[in-house]
């Protein structure tokens, strides 16, 4: 029982990690919060549903296509939401991303309606049995896909020439340009990369949790919380933050299942609603008492 719950928490955390990573990559490159990042998850879910219904392929095979489409969408997105406003204060970009996010939501609503839709599973709906414990194939698939994408992202950023340029751009845009880096290209690429990661998360989450046009807001707030927990600007912190949120979201409401007396003592406490409230209280507490994040040290360095 506990193992199954942990597997679900890990799968959710892995999907959140992809989402939070993309969010923080764009944050570092532009200095601005991309509020439409959650809508990229939503868009990824619908792209997967659309492609799945045409191609009749499992999610694992659709994944590269969804990632490519979402990268393109992120690229185009940056030309509307970021570049026209890049010399304005970051809050202008924040507002323009909200506006574009709303356009995305309404487009999705116009095409698919407000009712929840279910995305294709990565492989199948079944379970894996291993030594007496059963783990959902989807949960296992999410973890594997997320690990592959996070490792790929890490190698791209830290072991390639283009990755060096992306990091230099995130650290000091003026200086990056002064050493000959085409900074705008790097920022557009970052939007593509971040949106691709969000789209991959969307494909996988849309199967487990379904998808509606307005889900994005919830997801971007999750990313925001993960980054706050992990330390503003830190990539590894964002992944840790995502795992902590997921663990809390999955584990907390199921505590009474694991410890039956809790059901009698405080049944109202272990509900989905109460756990959401607690999550936000936790976020506020971190913002007040540890503005550098749970893991961040003093001033956050962007590495």
């Amino acid at each position: 029982m506990l193992l199954q719950i942990l597997a679900n928490a890990l799968a959710l955390g892995a999907a959140y990690a992809l989402l939070a990573l993309g969010f923080v990559l764009i944050l570092n490159a532009t200095g601005a919060v991309n509020f439409a990042h959650g809508d990229m998850v939503m868009a990824g879910g619908y792209v997967a549903i659309a492609m799945g219904s045409v191609l009749q392929l499992p999610g694992a095979l659709l994944l590269p296509l969804v990632v490519a489409v979402m990268a393109l969408l992120g690229f185009v997105f940056s030309w509307f939401a970021y570049f026209p406003l890049k010399n304005r204060p970051p809050v202008s970009v924040f507002i323009s991303t909200i506006a574009l996010g709303i356009i995305f939501q309404n487009s999705a609503n116009a095409i698919y309606g407000a009712a929840p839709r279910k995305g294709p599973p990565l492989l199948s709906e079944g379970n894996f049995g291993m030594g007496g414990i059963t783990i959902g194939a989807q949960a296992l698939g999410i973890v594997v896909v997320a690990i592959v994408l996070i490792v790929a992202q890490h190698l791209l950023l830290n072991r390639s020439g283009i990755g060096r340029k992306l990091r230099a751009t995130a650290q000091d845009r003026e200086m990056a340009e002064a050493v000959g880096i085409r900074v705008n290209r790097m920022i557009a690429l970052t939007f593509a990369l971040g949106s691709a990661l969000a789209g991959a998360a969307g494909l996988m989450l849309s199967n487990t949790f379904f998808i509606t046009p307005t889900d994005g807001t919830n997801y971007v707030i999750k990313a925001y919380i993960a980054v706050t927990i992990g330390g503003w600007g830190s990539l590894s912190g964002a992944v840790c933050g995502a795992l902590i949120i997921a663990l809390f979201e999955v584990l907390f409401p199921s505590l009474p299942l694991l410890i039956p007396p809790l059901k009698i003592i405080a049944p109202w406490l272990f509900t989905q609603t109460a756990s959401t409230i607690l999550l936000y209280v936790g976020l506020l507490a971190i913002m007040f008492f540890r503005p550098q994040g749970l893991f961040g040290e003093t001033v956050q360095r962007r590495v």
């Binding site: 990091r167 230099a168 650290q171 340009e177 002064a178 880096i181």
Partner: peptide, 22 residues
């Protein structure tokens, strides 16, 4: 700016501005 770098102007600014995380 990047065009000037490509044309062959190297720049070491006041305050150095090296990439801290690299």
């Amino acid at each position: 700016t990047f065009t000037r770098a490509e044309l062959g102007i190297g720049y070491s600014p006041e305050g150095r501005h090296i990439f801290q995380g690299l």
